[in-house]
Amino acid sequence: MVKEVEKAGFPVVILCNLIPVARSVGANKIVPTISIPYPLGDPATSKEEQYKLRRHRVEVALDALTEDIKEQTVFKVKI
């Protein structure tokens, strides 16, 4: 899906857990998430921690939208 969106000219970042799958399908900008059922917030942690993690990863993805990359890139996250 992400490929069709990019083909149409939209800058797009995919946030997902299975990076190799995103790589295989040809996504260009990839930001890792923490799991399949809860990509952006581990229910075993507090609401505050979940929000912090989600805010961080979404921010990395937003900044990735502005990056002028030349090849497929997996962006690094800190939390």
Binding site: L18, P20, V21, S24
Partner: peptide
Amino acid sequence: SQPLVALD
């Protein structure tokens, strides 16, 4: 469909 979900 793609034969394996991950390829390299």
